[in-house]
Design a protein around this nucleic acid. Structure first.
Lengths: 214, 214
DNA sequence: TCAAAAGTGTTGGCTGTACACCCATGG
DNA sequence: CCATGGGTGTACAGCCAACACTTTTGA
């Protein structure tokens, strides 16, 4: 009890809603809490801020500590401040969302996380704190952010097929998209180019590989 | 020094970028600080959170205390957390933006504000802390939010002319808009209706008054 | 009768959507 | 030769931008 202030100060944490697309599903990264409160419950990765770091530094550190994921795209989502959202003390949390491409999906549970797992968005377990609310907010934001073509590129590998990209859009929006219209739109943006190589997987025609220009 | 914690806790504040349109200009509400740090400098209205209030309650309270404005539309903008953004101690601030219609523009400086004034966005004085950065962020958000027709409605009276509404759009975007295209688009949304009354002001044809439907 | 803001339609380009078939490959 | 996903074009509708003159009023 050695940090004293003239006025009450809330605790400040960060939490992150890390999204990825696996097969045809939008998935979210959860950890099982190793400590009370909500010990054993599933929750978003996150934790308390240190005095010398920004919120973004904090959330990247916590994500790396608890799940091993680092160096992914992240953006601030919203700050949640209901006075009773944490049973221990007054805790204000700034939530971020992260976009994790397929080659960064490898996770390990560590630090305050007994376990870490990807969950399809439909069919999440009950979540600790107000984390279900945070996940809903993040999902809505992701749908909006999909209008920026850069968003979907962050959820595929550096080299990808147009079908890969379409799967990302479909998983996020939860609807089927017409293939010809999708390709016309994407190619019309002039943001990607063919690599020249093709990818063969399965008993069918190989797909042209593309990359983002520059 | 009576509030003690096991780990260091940052101070948490809110700040608000209150926008209004006066004549043809987008304006921002600033206060002159009555206390150090930055005593005498212009800054955004805002202040420290109380233990039992949410961030939104805090920002509404501070805006009312310092400028007398209450009951306006507000939305969370971003949380700013550079460790050295306040010279006193570690302060994390959650910024909101507010939309103030013409009948709520009356202000008085009170509490921690020696003075309160509307400033045109082009031509702000030097601002305390990182508030210039916050204002830039808010302005960019407001431009995005203008795509939602509800945004402009919040910056005019309940009963307004199409020219009023167009002035709001032009002030925010900083460009001239074609009158016929603007009216066609707005009326095509089916969100407003004529009140039947007209407004006469100046030596020219009176304008039809409109209101938002429902 | 002049100044000042209100009000009013048409056209062309672009964008988004609906829709069906052939191609390349492995098994 | 069959199953599987890859790849392709056209036609219609809705949206946006450009563009100029008449109306109503007070001075």
């Amino acid at each position: 009890m050695s940090y004293c202030y003239e006025y009450p100060h809330p605790a400040v944490t960060t939490d992150v809603v890390a999204f990825t697309v696996i097969r045809d599903d939008l998935q979210v990264l959860l950890i099982r809490r190793a400590r009370p409160p909500y010990r054993g419950a599933w929750a978003l990765p996150g934790g308390f801020i240190n005095p010398d770091e920004t919120l973004e530094e904090c959330v990247r550190r916590e994500l790396e500590e608890e799940t091993g994921i680092d160096d992914v795209f992240m953006e601030q989502l919203h700050t949640f401040s209901a006075p009773d959202r944490d049973p221990r003390e007054r805790v204000i949390t700034t939530a971020y969302y992260a976009l994790v491409p397929p080659n960064r999906q490898e996770i390990r549970g560590a630090s305050d996380a007994a376990e870490a797992r990807w969950f399809a968005l439909e069919g999440l377990p009950p979540l600790a704190f107000d984390h279900a609310h945070i996940v809903r907010t993040a999902r809505a934001r992701l749908v909006e952010k999909l209008e920026d073509p850069a968003t979907a590129f962050r959820l595929v590998l550096d080299v990808f097929t147009l079908s890969d990209l379409q799967r990302v859009h479909e998983a996020i929006l939860g609807v089927a998209i017409d293939k010809r219209n999708f390709r016309k739109k994407i190619l019309g943006q002039g943001l990607i180019e063919e690599t020249g190589a093709k990818r063969q997987c399965g008993a069918h025609r190989p797909a042209m590989l593309h990359r983002v220009i520059e």
